[in-house]
Structures are given as C-alpha cells and as structure tokens.
Amino acid sequence: MMQQIYPVGPHSFAYELNKDFHFAAAHYIPHEDAGKCQKIHGHTYFTNITIVGDELDHTGFLVNFKTIKDLVHKRFDHETLNQDQAFSDDKADQFPTTEVVARTIYEIVQQYLDSLPNHPICLQVYLRETPTSYCIYRPKRKDRI
C-alpha cells in the first residue's frame, strides 16, 4: 500500500492514530439513477481510520492497530455489502454507497471505542472506492456516538 497523508481537521488531543488497510467487496446501488452502479460490481476499498485521544491504555496503546482493522476487515472483506445488516435496498441513507459505507465503518469503530476505559474517539474515516474517487466521513460533534 502506498503511504499517503490524509487530510485531518485540527484537534486538541494528545495522540492521533491512523490505520490504513484495504478490503475487497461487491455491492450495487438499488436505484435507477445509479446508472451502471445498479449492477453488482466490486471494488478494492482502501481505508484510513483516524482515532484520537488523550490517554493510553494499560499496554501503552491508544488502541490496538490490529483490532481496528479486524473490526472492519473481518466483516466486509470478500462480502457483498448489500447483504450486511447495516445496509438496505429500501432506504437511500442505507444504500452501500461510499458515503454510507464510510459512515458505517465509523459507527462500527466508535461503538468498539466506547467500550474502552481510555475513551478514544474515531475522528474520521477515509474510504477510497476507486483510484479517483473517495469519501471522508467526519461525524458532527453532536452526532458522535
């Protein structure tokens, strides 16, 4: 994977952790306005997850890199996203678009982080669907889980 610096907004946390990984998945967008994307097709998604916090855990980690990757990779790699419980063919805000997949990854990661005693926060999820198309999901402060 090529090293890349991702845009991150300013923050006042002591630590910022970034985890890069990729996963392969198929999907389709169940709407007539989606054009060719209505048909099932696949991508190799490249993901960067940014986590921030002020306290390290008992092992000296903000959060374990492997755990962050496993939360997403084990769930979505070599799957059809439309079949996952997080997505729906009936509601546009639950179609597995790049935007919705990025938001869903945030929700999965933040739910795990909420269980940790050192209270790290997922600041953003960067999701590249193709070499020329990507999305960044940053929850509004009031919307953080």
Rank of each mutant, 00 (worst) to 15 (best):
F76R: 12
S12T: 14
A25E: 02
H78M: 08
D89C: 15
L62N: 02
F76K: 08
A14T: 15
D90R: 14
D93P: 13
Y106S: 00
D57T: 06
H58Q: 14
N64R: 05
H11V: 11
Y137V: 03
V52A: 02
M1Y: 13
K74M: 06
H31S: 15
D90M: 13
C122T: 10
H43A: 12
V109C: 04
R144Y: 05
L56C: 04
I51C: 12
N18M: 15
N48G: 13
K69C: 05
I136H: 03
P120F: 08
D143S: 14
F46P: 04
T97Y: 02
F95P: 10
Q3N: 11
R128P: 02
V52Y: 01
I51H: 09
K74F: 04
A86S: 06
Y106A: 00
Y28S: 08
A25K: 00
F65G: 09
Q94K: 15
V72R: 03
F13T: 02
D84V: 08
V63M: 05
N82T: 07
R103L: 02
V8L: 14
G9S: 13
T47D: 07
L81P: 02
D70A: 14
R141G: 10
G9V: 06
G60P: 05
A26D: 14
H22P: 03
E16P: 11
P30I: 07
D54R: 08
A86V: 00
L17D: 11
V109Q: 00
L17R: 13
V72I: 15
A24G: 15
F21L: 08
M2I: 14
V8N: 10
I51E: 09
V100I: 14
P30M: 11
I145S: 12
V125D: 07
D57V: 05
V109M: 01
R144P: 06
Q124D: 09
E129F: 07
C37L: 07
V101A: 00
T50M: 01
E129R: 11
Q38E: 08
L62G: 02
H43W: 07
I49N: 06
P131A: 11
I40M: 13
E129T: 05
I29L: 14
D57K: 04
P139N: 03
H58W: 08
I40Q: 13
D20R: 10
C122A: 12
F46M: 09
Q83Y: 07
H43P: 12
E107K: 09
A92M: 10
R144Q: 14
V125C: 07
N18G: 14
A25R: 05
V8K: 12
Y15C: 08
C122W: 03
F61S: 13
A26V: 06
S88G: 12
H78Q: 06
G60Q: 02
A92G: 04
A34R: 12
G53R: 05
K36C: 11
Q4K: 09
E16K: 15
P120L: 06
T98N: 11
G60E: 01
P96E: 01
R141F: 07
P96R: 03
D33G: 10
N18R: 14
Y106N: 01
T67C: 08
F65L: 12
C37N: 09
N64I: 03
L116H: 02
T130V: 10
V8C: 09
N48R: 15
T50N: 06
Y15L: 08
F13G: 01
E99Q: 12
T130D: 03
C135V: 13
I68W: 01
I105L: 01
R141W: 03
P96V: 03
Y112I: 02
C122R: 00
K39M: 04
T44V: 08
T59F: 09
L127E: 02
H119M: 11
